[in-house]
């Protein structure tokens, strides 16, 4: 696992990818920070939450090559024919991407120091949103890895990852849409409006249950809760396990 982590992590810095991702993050977070600063009120939590919306760009950049590139170049064979566990390969690549995220985050730490030195507040809500930031990063990186494992094209993997993350970010909007459509449809085909509505609501609630953003929304107010974190971690594990299974499938699958 450490071998894979080391190689992947260093490879971000052997190619321009790592630098560009960090530069992008610095620029965007700097923009948000200065905007806040010049208005006289710096809200680190708000900045961190805004940076979350760039997961949709930064995560695919980081993870698109993870497995797709190995498949294309034939280097994946190393992971099958040397005595390493495939899951530790997945986890090593996950850690590498996660470590890159931690490096990017140094920017925000600098912003926090500046805020503190200007008598601004770095309060519990900020720490809460930072915790959430990393747990969501873990979740999205594992999604990116899965997207990278299903294809040998970096572009397709990046697009797939992009679409999944966009979907998760818009889940509350989409669920409302789907729920309304279904209850309207049920009403048209003759289901009584009451039960059609309740089915629609059930669908909306079911889909919203999967929304990690609303689950973790309270952290920015300093209200910490363990279950949303468990949600993020457990689904990150699910996606990594799926990635692992997809890699392993190659061994026995018929084609």
């Amino acid at each position: 696992m450490f071998a894979v982590f080391k190689r992947e992590f260093l490879s971000y810095f052997r190619s321009p990818v790592g630098y560009v991702a960090i530069a992008l993050f610095s620029f965007l977070s700097g923009y948000i920070f200065i905007n806040n600063f010049s208005s006289g009120s710096v809200n680190i939590a708000s900045e961190v939450i805004s940076m979350r919306s760039f997961f949709v760009v930064i995560v695919p950049i980081i993870t698109m090559g993870s497995f797709a590139e190995d498949k294309k170049r034939g280097t994946e064979i190393l992971y099958y024919t040397t005595p390493v566990d495939l899951f530790s390969v997945v986890f090593g690549k996950f850690l590498a991407a996660f470590a890159l995220y931690m490096i990017m985050f140094v920017n925000i730490i600098v912003h926090m120091i500046v805020t503190k030195s200007c008598n601004g507040i770095v309060g519990i809500g900020d720490w809460g949103s930072i915790i959430v930031f990393f747990f969501l990063a873990a979740l999205f990186i594992s999604i990116g890895l899965l997207a990278s494992a299903i294809t040998d094209s970096q572009i397709i993997s990046a697009i797939a990852c992009f679409i999944i993350i966009i979907f998760i970010q818009l889940i509350s909007t989409i669920s409302a849409l789907v729920g309304n459509t279904i209850s309207a449809f049920l009403a048209v085909i003759g289901v009584s409006s009451e039960s059609a509505n309740s089915i629609g609501t059930a669908i909306v609630n079911g889909m919203n249950w999967l929304d990690p953003f609303t689950k973790t929304a309270d952290f920015r107010y300093g209200v910490f809760s363990v279950s949303p974190l468990i949600f993020c971690v457990s689904f990150a594990i699910v996606f990594m396990f799926l990635t692992f299974r997809i890699l392993e499938k190659k061994r026995w699958a018929k084609s």
Partner: peptide, 11 residues
């Protein structure tokens, strides 16, 4: 919930 004003003299 957040009072994030900073020392305005430094802005």
């Amino acid at each position: 919930l957040d009072d994030y004003s900073i020392d305005s003299a430094k802005v």
